[in-house]
Design a protein around this nucleic acid. Structure first.
Length: 423
RNA sequence: GCGGCUGUAGCUCAGCUGGUAGUAGCGCCAGAUUGUGAUUCUGGAUGUCAUGGGUUCAAAUCCCAUCAGCCGCCCCA
């Protein structure tokens, strides 16, 4: 049997309805913030991601789907979408659009990682980018927007149990971060030998990751490490304070966590992340941050400061499902049960009429009424519409309310009104 | 890429220390006379016991490998 390849999966009904709902909520929130959809190709030249995301990141080093095209070009399935959006921005001179340029996207990304719950090789992201301003007010608004999406999906903004938790930080800029990194390395040189094996390795390969260590014994040491917030330059410090004051102004709860580090090279200043309790080890639903230097690293002649986020849609759907165990199962309004040739002929036009009135209809192809009602019941249809020789002779329609078990004989004119009445 | 656990009907599983699968539950299909579902009764279908090797007279059951899923690590949404 041919099966879906490792790390990919089919999204079947009724779960697909949750996906649609989540996407509909996101699109509506984007609309109210005046973000517009951008669709970029699913694969790009490898160098785009290598330069955008960072040569030394794990994503580029070992997690991309890359192959050589027939003409020798190295092609990669997009592992994330920010670099592509920025490429499109530069290529089409979108900087010419007045004001802050606001885009959103929904689509699949690809990463060759070991699959587990909430982590797939083809995964979906809902994301947005605001390009063209380095104002901290934009940062706050982007965060506000993402919080609105989660709330719209039914998640609660409280850290406990089924709520979500917003964490923010500033990772500084090319001016002040090197200073912090030096301080961190210096301290780690003496401290690392007392820490776990992973940290000893990280101290050399990726010092920022030490801050994220989860080993309990290491926490005392981590607490003595320098904080990025103490090393921010004046501009970065001011930027971060304004972001926070605007979040306060919008009544958005958050936690400042200096240890929040991001894996992608292009982030600077504001970074943020939201976690959700229902997710286990992969508890991060979304992440984002500012990337003021990205455009230049992609050869843009004009600066294009920006900030964006991406929601792990697979994980958001998991959270939403965990919240609302039994969502209202969307089912057909009317299950049409024709009996006999005359009824079969009439059923087609009747179904079409109901559908054009916005009523969902499925017609039975089973001649037995008993069977038709059985199926209607199992599908959870709201009504069964019985149509046989008796009805045709009398010019009436027998409408049965499946939940109540009652049925009434109606004229064609009464039908639609009656079906709509208790919807 | 690394480590741990798991893999029996569509789903949830039983199958003890090897003798070649279960009247199991749910679901599905059919019937209990001719146009009425949800309860009930009766009957039925479905598995190369994940795949490939090995040990054995004999393996779903032991061993190895592969694949897939889950959990964790790395990293990250």
């Amino acid at each position: 049997m041919i099966k879906a390849i490792k790390g990919t999966r089919d999204i079947l009904p009724p779960a697909s309805a949750v996906w649609n709902r989540v996407e509909a909520v996101a699109r509506e929130v984007f609309r109210t913030f005046n973000y517009h959809e951008i669709r970029t190709p699913i694969f790009e030249e490898t160098s785009l991601f290598a330069r955008g995301v960072g040569e030394d990141t794990d994503i580029v080093g070992k997690e991309m789907y890359t192959w050589e095209d027939r003409d020798g070009t190295s092609i990669t399935l997009r592992p994330e979408n920010t670099a592509s959006v920025m490429r499109a921005y530069i290529e089409h001179r979108l900087d010419q659009i007045p004001g802050v340029k606001k885009f959103y996207y929904i689509g699949p990304m690809f990463r060759r990682e070991r699959p587990q719950k909430g982590r797939y090789r083809q995964f979906f992201q809902i994301g947005a980018e605001a390009i063209g301003s380095d104002s901290p007010i934009v940062d706050a608004e982007v965060i506000e927007m993402v919080v609105e999406i989660l709330k719209g999906c039914g998640l609660k903004p409280v850290p406990e149990k089924d709520g979500f938790h917003l964490i923010i930080n500033s990772v500084g800029c090319p001016k002040c971060r090197p200073e912090f990194m030096n301080a961190l390395r210096e301290k780690l040189a003496t401290l690392a030998p007392q820490m776990c094996a992973d940290c000893q390795r990280r101290a050399v390969t990726n010092p920022l990751r030490v801050l994220d260590c989860k080993v309990p014994e290491d926490q005392v040491h981590i607490d003595t490490l320098p904080s990025i917030l103490d090393h921010l330059c004046e501009e970065c410090h001011g930027h971060f304070k304004i972001v926070q004051s605007h979040l306060h102004g919008r009544g958005i709860a958050y936690e400042v966590r200096p240890r929040l580090v991001r894996g992608l090279d292009y982030y600077m200043r504001t970074t943020f992340e939201i976690t959700h309790g229902a997710l286990g080890a992969q508890n991060s639903v979304l992440g984002g941050g500012r990337y003021d230097g990205l455009a230049e690293s992609l050869d843009s002649k004009v600066p294009a400061p920006g900030i964006g986020f991406s929601i792990g849609e697979d994980r958001l759907v998991l959270s939403v499902e965990a919240m609302s165990a039994s969502e209202e199962s969307n089912t057909v309004d009317v299950y049409l049960a024709p009996m006999g040739d005359a009824a079969d002929a009439l059923a087609g036009t009747l179904a079409a009429e109901l559908r054009s009135a916005g009523i969902s209809v499925e017609r039975s192809v089973d001649r037995k009424l008993k069977r038709a009602l059985e199926v209607a019941n199992k599908m959870g249809a709201r009504f069964a519409l019985i149509l046989g020789d008796n009805e045709i002779a009398a010019g009436t329609y027998l409408l049965k309310d499946m939940a109540a078990g009652e049925q009434e004989s109606l004229t064609r004119d009464q039908l639609i009104a009656r079906i709509r009445k208790n919807s």
